[in-house]
Design a protein around this nucleic acid. Structure first.
Lengths: 153, 153
DNA sequence: TCAAATTAAATTGTATACAATATAATTTAA
DNA sequence: TTAAATTATATTGTATACAATTTAATTTGA
């Protein structure tokens, strides 16, 4: 592709992924509103439903988010009574995030979310699976770059 | 997939796309810094390099962004001297965005951006093309839903 | 024709994101 | 052993995003 062609909006893979991510988030919004969660809060809860009593650091690594994003987000979830934030007795630097009974209970409602969103989406399962696997490949290809960046190379 | 399986973070296509979009943006950042642009400012400039003297509404439709995002972003680009913002004489409701000479000149520097980012990415062309086409398909599938939402259905 | 409806931007308010910095706790190493 | 380095989280500042509302201009329709 010529550098002229490469500069066209239509040819930007980055823009295609960026636009899809926003569109998908928009799709989740009405469904998540019933749970009182935003999209980012939802993925944080998904992570916590799988593993509880984790530090902000560990949660951030799983969600690719840093403390600047997570600290206010977790405070909001704490204010909603879904989790508690308390320092680790063994290492006071770490903050342990623990779900409350309400936080665990919300999972029952959330079980319906994927199905609801899928039905609304007008997308077939094959496309979804293909996309997920390709995003996985892309992420695997990009992660070494991201890691090198973090090390300041 | 069971509803239990469907709730795992690892199985979320939405999260995969969301995480990739952020990672890609991060990849562009150091390259765009040389042009003095953020990622969103860059895609706005890409659109304007292709078609100039457009309204905020038209630009927003191409970028999937609304005036709440574009108004401050365009004011920043105006402050940098890359474009001018002026009401359309024929319809004073509309604001026409026009590139300045500096704005057009920046395109020369930007011609190198796609190549630079690609080289850093460690991704091959085939994967990129496949992803772009699939994101296009997904967007096409989702757009009717988005349009219906806008109409309040 | 002119009030009501529509349209385009701007504004307000809330919620991410993340770089850079600050703070406090822990670990390392001389 | 204790000062220096490292680590985990919080804070600050900037830049998106977008829903909801407001404002001003234009179009529509009785």
């Amino acid at each position: 592709m010529s550098s002229e062609e490469a500069l066209k909006l239509e040819n930007q893979t980055c823009f295609a992924v960026y636009a899809c991510a926003k569109e998908i988030t928009r799709l989740y919004q009405p469904v998540l509103k019933e749970l009182g969660l935003t999209y980012t809060q939802y993925i944080a809860m998904l992570a916590l439903w799988e593993r509880d009593a984790v530090s902000v650091k560990e949660l951030g690594e799983r969600l690719f988010l840093d403390s600047g994003t997570l600290t206010p987000l977790l405070k909001k979830l704490e204010a909603q009574g879904l989790l508690t934030r308390g320092r680790d007795a063994g290492d006071e630097r770490q903050l342990l995030i623990r779900l409350t009974a309400d936080g665990r209970a919300l999972r029952e409602k959330a079980l319906e979310v994927p199905e609801k969103v899928f039905c609304q989406s007008g997308v077939n399962v094959e496309m979804l699976m293909k996309i997920r696997s390709q995003m996985g490949e892309l992420m695997t290809a990009l992660q070494p770059v991201a890691a090198a960046d973090k090390r300041g190379e």
